[in-house]
Design a protein around this nucleic acid. Sequence first.
DNA 1: AAGCGCAGGTGACAAATGTCACCCCAAGGC
DNA 2: GCCTTGGGGTGACATTTGTCACCTGCGCTT
Lengths: 201, 201
Amino acid sequence: MIRIVIAEDQALVLGAIASLLALEPDLEIVGRAADGPQALELVRGLQPDILLSDIEMPGLTGIEVAARLKDCGVPTRVLIVTTFGRAGYLRRAIDAGVCGYLLKDSPADRLADAIRRVAAGGRVIDPELASVAAFAPADPLSDRERAVLRLAQDGRSNKEIGRAMALSPGTVRNYLSEAAAKLGAANRIEASRIARENGWL
Amino acid sequence: MIRIVIAEDQALVLGAIASLLALEPDLEIVGRAADGPQALELVRGLQPDILLSDIEMPGLTGIEVAARLKDCGVPTRVLIVTTFGRAGYLRRAIDAGVCGYLLKDSPADRLADAIRRVAAGGRVIDPELASVAAFAPADPLSDRERAVLRLAQDGRSNKEIGRAMALSPGTVRNYLSEAAAKLGAANRIEASRIARENGWL
DNA sequence: AAGCGCAGGTGACAAATGTCACCCCAAGGC
DNA sequence: GCCTTGGGGTGACATTTGTCACCTGCGCTT
């Protein structure tokens, strides 16, 4: 019997996935979490075989939860199921030690299968994503550029960004200009869009 | 027996919801669609009692599908289930003649209930959303402002936007300035973010 | 010690953006 | 006829961005 905790912030989807997995006789759902911190606590307490988690969740992302579990030496294996085919997330997920990465676009019957494979010690990556990831460019941004871009994307000016990061406005401009150049964007708006679409923010 | 077509672009979620509804003896899933046009065609052909649909889908949004069904006089009642609590969508959904609007955040057991109520001729609006919507400001943007903002948000310059819309760059500037003023934003980036967050784009 | 790389900064300049006042003209009231 | 209204536009101006060359100080090799 494979013991599973599910973490997913949309209650309806959480319930639906649970009912899907309940059809499988060898899988048992032992816990449900609606956000990151709750997932972490639940896994620590229940020590399930598998944590099935979304990425976008309040508090902590699924990837961050995976990283913390790894740090604490919890043996639970993490399987990420998420919306975004963003190649950038995959790399970070792997770095965080997840054992599987599925897309919500993949057919439902693949899920139980993936869980069994991961529980048996294997690694699963969505085939659709695997090929994309192989060709996907690596994140070209430095930490500073990422941070600046994150602030720029919701409309802050250079001066405000500088204030927030303890940098001079001129330096902020340089970072943004550099980031745009790296991403082939014409301006900060396009740059942050590109970065966001690739999961680099 | 209530006959249902489900439209949802994420296969895994689609499958999961189907398995959830399959537990209810009085509900029957007669069709599944992965995008807007497919949903439209399926509903036209099968004439189910209910179309359960997401909003964001390739091709046509759930709301657009609902509007077309209304125009064609198809008697199927539409129930929207979606991620975004954006109040702006609700208004447009109601205008398109949908009979129900649920959030994916609401508990799973509410779904079957909502379907029965809608099938019986009732209207259902997620209670969480209903109160929000009552206080939500109406969309202050004109069609032109919306269109300009949509182009601005992915980094096009005034000149490019003007070319795309057959307007002079100066006029584009005026529209954007006006839109920003209406939304209390300092610039086009913030303006489009605010509009997006409210479901006005 | 000399040299290198790198984060942060400056200054100057062109271009894009934001703001505002005001113009034109085609519908529609009356 | 006259007046209003609204979409589209212009011109002028201040401010903000984007680009680029170059400076500074610090830590690190060798």
